[in-house]
Design a protein around this nucleic acid. Structure first.
Lengths: 120, 120
DNA sequence: CTGTATCCATTGGGATACTG
DNA sequence: CAGTATCCCAATGGATACAG
């Protein structure tokens, strides 16, 4: 069965194809907050509050939305520890650890070359 | 002069710092259209129309805005060849070729692992 | 051919306030 | 603590149409 990029499965995928689902994935990952959130989880599980502090300036609403989308994509897992006060931990899945590398490379490149970059 | 991340210059930069200018740079690059546009220029200069066709589905307005921001950041150069009809070529600068690598890695990762990723 | 010019819909995202 | 609930705005982005 020669599946197309649009229908997904095992063919070649192409981010340049308008209807390829990988477009949506790229859109999810190639995003400031996602890139930062995934990076913040590289060293192990973190709680919501810790993430919010680490991603300076992110509002709870936006952080929640970001984490939910990453969870839906299978990049992040969310674990609730029944306790009071509530205790929730976010952690990278194996998939998340996989994509963390190219994202770390991108973040690193930006930090390393900022001095060569004009005012954006 | 011990410059801070906010004022830029030669200190350590941190994408996790709210006021660090590299946040804006990350925002510019960690973006679907930017990532695609830079990738489309990896193999050499391209004209506006060629880019528009290659980045399936992008409107001229959005493509122009994307290219302008990349030009401002110093990632892309824009060359006008005086002729009729107009002839304009976009090309990666050395800086653009530098960032093209982490971006290509990200695009490649998405294409390679799409089958493991849940519906986004 | 290479863009602007418009118009418009969506929404990402910021600020707070508040609740289980 | 970990969000949700609102409110609201600026901006992204899509679709055409049109101009130099």
């Amino acid at each position: 069965m020669t599946t197309t990029c649009a229908t997904g499965q095992h063919d070649k995928h192409d981010v340049y194809a308008a209807q390829c689902p990988c477009r949506d994935v790229l859109d999810l990952l190639a995003n400031k907050w996602s890139a930062l959130a995934i990076g913040a989880l590289e060293d192990g599980p973190r709680r919501f509050g810790a993430l919010q502090r680490h991603l300076e300036g992110v509002s709870p609403k936006v952080l929640t939305a970001t984490l939910r989308r990453l969870e839906d994509g299978g990049f992040v897992s969310r674990t609730v520890y029944p306790a009071v006060p509530p205790h929730v931990e976010y952690e990278l899945t194996p998939l998340g650890r996989g994509v963390a590398r190219p994202l770390a490379a991108l973040r690193g490149w930006v930090e390393d070359h900022l001095h060569e970059i004009g005012p954006v």
